[in-house]
């Protein structure tokens, strides 16, 4: 269970949100500049809220100015929009960078059909393969929460459909809270258990998807 209650002044807007996430996929939906990525960054520890409290299960990640758990200790997987794969490492080196168990990482690679790409470099594989490598790398660290920042935006129609199915399958296999940022309504409805509509830094609606 993730509990978020935070305020942060950005250049044009003031972010002021409160929500909770249980072992479900929630979608942060809103136009660009509405503060979606900043929320992810505050949860991951890449940014600090001005005030507020973020708690993951029984661990306080950040509370006002007095508590700030370093990024490394948060156990949060983060899939960046551009995947942020290390260009100088092979697929396997990328995945094993922070993995907990070799067997689990290898099983994930088989699951996502990238085990034959082990020794390739990121610039030698397709966009869809990069995306699957990045998600494998994030899950191999066995995080307690997964943050996905528009992970499908760079994919073509076919690869995107496949990635949607894979994400749902991974979530069924492995129930952890997932926050997905997107600006595609269709994607939000297909993947989300709940959709949080964000506008100018405030939550407009918190709507379950049937």
């Amino acid at each position: 269970m993730l509990t978020v209650q935070m305020k942060k002044k950005l250049e044009h807007i003031e972010l002021d949100v409160a929500f909770t996430v249980s072992d479900e996929i929630i979608v942060l939906f809103g136009p660009s500049g509405s503060g979606k990525t900043t929320i992810l960054n505050c949860i991951a520890g890449l940014a600090k809220p001005d005030t507020g409290k973020i708690q993951l299960h029984d661990v306080i990640l950040v509370e006002d100015k007095q508590t700030f758990l370093p990024i490394q200790q948060r156990k949060i997987g983060y899939l960046f929009q551009d995947y942020a794969l290390f260009p100088h490492m092979t697929v396997w080196k990328n995945i094993s960078y922070g993995m907990k168990s070799k067997a689990f990482a290898e099983q994930l690679m088989k699951e996502l059909g990238i085990d034959h790409l082990r020794d390739r470099y990121p610039n030698e594989i397709s966009g869809g393969e990069k995306q699957r490598t990045a998600i494998t790398r994030a899950i191999a660290t066995e995080p307690k929460l997964l943050l996905l920042d528009e992970p499908f935006s760079a994919l073509d129609e076919q690869a995107r459909a496949r990635s949607h199915e894979e994400l749902l399958r991974l979530h069924r296999l492995w129930k952890i809270p997932i926050i997905l940022v997107t600006h595609s309504q269709q994607e939000a409805e297909k993947l989300g258990d709940r959709i949080l509509y964000l506008h100018d830094g405030k939550l407009q609606r918190d709507q379950p998807v049937k």
Partner: peptide, 26 residues
């Protein structure tokens, strides 16, 4: 790309490890 270092941090790597395995080689 600062995101490469951020990604390494989220995977639990120390500053020292990030410097030697990501920042320096790149």
């Amino acid at each position: 790309d600062p995101n490469l270092e951020h990604a390494a941090y989220t995977m639990g790597a120390s500053k020292w490890k990030v410097f030697w395995t990501v920042s320096f080689p790149l």
